[in-house]
């Protein structure tokens, strides 16, 4: 996908999230539009950084760094960005992303059906293991550090 097309994908994502925020979360249309717009601009900015800057660090890294920096109190536009991005509910974005995720699954169902029950049990154990072990360690650490 060319950069132009990637940017278009994010614009479409922004428009869909605007519609979801207005219809399902009763956000004022202008707030939803500006909030989604901020997210699109920051994301595209992060992806550009990932392409330009050396080190071949993953997109996630640069997108996170840019989003965090833009919203820290030292950023001159922090107030604007945090105010409007706050209007876009995280769960609304999740629903948009998982709609696309669902649409990619159908083609893999054929392969999935051929799998033995054993591998499915192992998959459940792997996902449960990573979540529960990290939660357990976090609980102990946060407690020791006096944060909770």
């Amino acid at each position: 996908m060319s950069l132009m097309e990637e940017i278009l994908v994010f614009i479409v994502a922004g428009l869909i999230s605007t519609v979801v925020c207005i219809t399902a979360y009763a956000v004022a249309p202008l707030d939803a539009f500006l909030g989604s717009g901020c997210i699109v601009v920051i994301t595209v900015g992060g992806i550009l950084l990932a392409k330009i800057l050396p080190g071949h660090l993953p997109m996630v890294f640069w997108v996170s760094i840019l989003a965090i920096l833009v919203a820290t109190p030292i950023s001159p536009i922090a107030g604007f960005v945090t105010y409007y991005v706050d209007k876009v509910d995280f769960l609304a974005l999740c629903t948009v992303v998982l709609s696309y995720a669902g649409l990619t699954v159908g083609k893999d169902i054929g392969m999935f059906k051929k799998m033995s029950w054993r591998i499915i049990v192992v998959a459940l154990a792997v996902y449960t293991g990573t979540f529960i072990c990290a939660t357990f360690v976090a609980q102990v650490m946060l407690h020791l550090e006096g944060i909770i």
């Binding site: 994301t43 919203a71 995280f90 974005l93 948009v96």
Partner: peptide
């Protein structure tokens, strides 16, 4: 989808910033 997940990353980054 690979690109879309980045909007979640951005949203979380903006929550972390302040």
């Amino acid at each position: 989808l690979g690109l879309m997940t980045m909007i979640l990353v951005t949203k979380l980054g903006v929550v972390i910033g302040p």
